[in-house]
Write a protein that binds this DNA or RNA. Sequence first.
DNA 1: TTCATTAATTCAAATATTTAAATGTTTCTA
DNA 2: TAGAAACATTTAAATATTTGAATTAATGAA
Lengths: 91, 91
Amino acid sequence: MDNKKIEKISKALSDTSRIAILQQVKKKHEGLYCAEVNDLLDLTQPSVSHHLKQLVEADLLIPEKEGRNLKYSLNQKVLDDYIACLSSLKG
Amino acid sequence: MDNKKIEKISKALSDTSRIAILQQVKKKHEGLYCAEVNDLLDLTQPSVSHHLKQLVEADLLIPEKEGRNLKYSLNQKVLDDYIACLSSLKG
DNA sequence: TTCATTAATTCAAATATTTAAATGTTTCTA
DNA sequence: TAGAAACATTTAAATATTTGAATTAATGAA
């Protein structure tokens, strides 16, 4: 994982709304729907869409189409890789 | 560690210059001086100062005065706490 | 096919970040 | 004390991000 990628993931994580989204994704480990984020957090629909996009583009969330719904789940591997990079910063 | 703190640390990590600074800090585990950052990375002095400030304000770096120099070292505990928070996002 | 639902996109406004040039502060040394 | 060195701060310009309103696109159901 290069520095550009670390930057991208960090940027995706640098917003309390997106952190909250990830926490909700954890709770519902079958996968979280876009509309659920809308209900659970106090955000408008376009704003939710924008945040989800950032998380997907950072590869932290995996989108999956289910009819007209979209189910998001955590990309554990990418999170693990990111954590490994941060760990390697330690002495 | 609350979401605001996670946001702050993530933001500090969301810049390739700052990631590079942390990587240099790791290499020189006795502590890195401001002027060294200036030499190692292609940044102007005020820019280095700005980036270091962000890292210090996120508690990732610990500044230590040494005469007219400033020595920076990694705050391992904060990095560990941050990593623990990210790990807890996993199922 | 038509309507309703889900979610993405576009646009604009407000805000935040990055960067360098100029300047200021602190501390060491002669 | 005067000058130099190391670093911080201020300011301004360019750029990026966040957010919501309005709109569009895609899918499912009647």
